[in-house]
């Protein structure tokens, strides 16, 4: 009997959790892919986030705006991982798996080969920005999070975000104009 009640409660929790997070999994995956540049790493990051969040289902039920809340949780999970990687003796590259993304993306067929080359150069230039500029440009200019949302997600004042965004964009324009970012190393 006790076991049966426990199983039923567990099922209800699981259903509640699924109802809360399933509308956001795709967006979380996109963000995770922007951060990591690899499809498998993006899936791992989202998977780990969901595992961490499941025990916090009651807390999730109280969150008004779940999208930025989840984005914030994913960002800090990524930062933790990134910092642990930094502790390893080799600084591992973050070159995006551009070929795979272009080949598999929904854009394929819509973009000319020349445009795809340009976008590959753009992604490589983004990969050579500092982490704070890269993350901000990816979240704001690529994934369209507003600066107001990012103020909460990144826990950074609006003014700082604006000046950081402007510096990041300026750096990106400079990299693209000069072509000073290295070509793919793989």
């Amino acid at each position: 009997m006790l076991f049966s009640l426990f199983s039923r409660k567990k099922r209800i929790d699981a259903d509640s959790f699924e109802a809360l997070v399933s509308p956001h999994v795709e967006q979380l995956y996109r963000l995770a892919y922007r951060y990591t540049g690899q499809q498998a790493d993006a899936e791992d990051l989202v998977q780990d986030l969901l595992i961490k969040l499941y025990p916090r289902t009651p807390e999730l039920q109280q969150v008004g705006q779940l999208k930025p809340w989840l984005a914030k949780s994913l960002y800090y999970l990524y930062v933790d991982r990134y910092r642990s990687q930094k502790r390893s003796p080799i600084e591992f590259g973050q070159e995006h798996d551009i070929e795979a993304a272009t080949a598999n993306s929904n854009h394929q067929g819509e973009l000319s080969p020349q445009r795809q080359d340009t976008i590959r150069d753009l992604q490589r230039a983004i990969d050579h920005l500092s982490d704070e500029h890269r993350i901000l440009i990816l979240m704001h200019d690529v994934e369209a999070y507003t600066l107001t949302e990012l103020e909460s997600i990144l826990e950074t004042p609006l003014g700082t975000l604006k000046s950081r965004l402007h510096r990041g964009r300026a750096k990106l324009r400079k990299l693209l104009e000069e072509g000073t970012f290295p070509a793919s190393q793989a």
């Binding site: 929790d13 699981a14 399933s22 999994v25 993304a101 993306s105 976008i119 324009r173």
Partner: peptide, 28 residues
């Protein structure tokens, strides 16, 4: 540049990933 930034592709979410990931998280 702003327009191109929005065109940077991501591979589509693998079919079934959301369901599998949630099932793994909940132990289902």
């Amino acid at each position: 540049l702003q327009h191109m930034l929005k065109e940077i592709p991501t591979p589509p979410l693998r079919s079934g990933f959301a369901r599998e990931a949630i099932a793994r998280a909940t132990g289902s």
